[in-house]
């Protein structure tokens, strides 16, 4: 395990902003940390980096206590937007960061190349566009090839092409054996690249699984005539307008039942809920 938390909790006053979160990130995977605005993603990540002290529970990062040099030197991070000196160029900002991390300057150019910022590296950070600032933040996280990357909403401010680049970059990183924990409030954006996801809402981890598991069992959509009669016949079905939704059913036996009862079956197909719908159900319910 690269990251584990055990009932990790942060209270501000009497409000638990992060509430007994127990999650785990495995070596080499891309872990999507998902949740709507204000769910507690950034606060959890801050605790993993030692910026915020938990009020309860524990966390281990690469087997170490969060925020210690042993952990931090092996983690690259970008938390809630990049933090750089506005008057320095992108390159100088990375040089300053490399010095803090005890890394040689040669790492700077490699990181700039990875995020495609070599051309603008001499420009003042102040004059960067939102997307360029974000990419510089990712470059800082990449410096020195840390084992674990913690990226808090890395695609914030990126255009669709930039988002695609970011996804490619994350894929390339895992191909090199790096582990990535990335947060997002847009499921569709990370669905393709995440091996596993943790869903947080109102400070509580409401699910942690693979994307497929998260989608859950397939639901059958049945269009039949008369639909009310079919609804009565099939146990556990639910009526949605003029169609039925049936959970965990065998299509063949379902059709046989309906036909034998003289119900016309016009359509039976698996209803693929989008992850977005699942997400909405979960986080809305919590």
């Amino acid at each position: 395990m690269i990251v584990t938390t055990e009932k990790l909790t942060k209270r501000y006053g009497d409000r638990a902003v992060v509430d007994e979160v127990s999650l785990s990130v495995r070596r080499g995977e891309v872990y999507g940390f998902l949740g709507p605005n204000g769910a507690g993603k950034t606060t959890t990540i801050r605790m993993l980096l030692g910026l915020v002290k938990p009020t309860g529970g524990t966390a281990r990062v690469l087997g170490e206590a969060p925020g210690t040099p042993k952990a931090l030197l092996r983690v690259g991070s970008l938390i809630e937007g990049p933090g750089f000196y506005p008057y320095l160029s992108g390159r100088d900002n990375l040089r300053v960061h490399a010095a803090r991390r005890g890394l040689a300057r040669s790492h700077v150019e490699a990181a700039l190349e990875q995020v495609d910022l070599v051309g603008a590296a001499g420009q003042g950070f102040r004059r960067y566009s939102l997307g360029m600032k974000q990419r510089l933040g990712v470059a800082a996280a990449l410096l020195g090839r840390p084992e674990l990357l913690i990226l808090d909403e890395p695609t914030n401010g990126l255009d669709p092409a930039g988002m695609a680049d970011m996804r490619d970059l994350v894929r390339a990183l895992t191909a090199q054996g790096q582990t990535v924990l990335l947060s997002s409030h847009l499921l569709g954006e990370v669905e393709e690249i995440c091996d596993r996801v943790g869903v947080i809402a109102n400070g509580r981890l409401v699910a942690e699984s693979t994307v497929e598991q998260l989608r859950g069992d397939t639901v059958l959509l049945v269009r039949a005539d008369p639909v009310e009669k079919a609804h009565v016949l099939i146990e556990g079905s639910s009526l949605h307008g003029d169609v039925l939704h049936v959970r965990e059913a065998d299509a063949a036996s379902l059709v046989r039942t309906l036909v034998q009862a003289d119900v016309d079956v016009r359509e039976v197909r698996p209803l693929l809920r989008t992850l977005e719908e699942v997400f909405f159900e979960m986080t809305g319910a919590a």
């Binding site: 925020g67 931090l72 000196y85 803090r100």
Partner: peptide, 18 residues
């Protein structure tokens, strides 16, 4: 305001060293 303390404190060195 610049967020550079955040970058500094997650770079590696302990807070006392920083």
């Amino acid at each position: 305001g610049w967020g550079t303390w955040k970058t500094t404190l997650t770079a590696g060195p302990r807070r006392v060293s920083a």
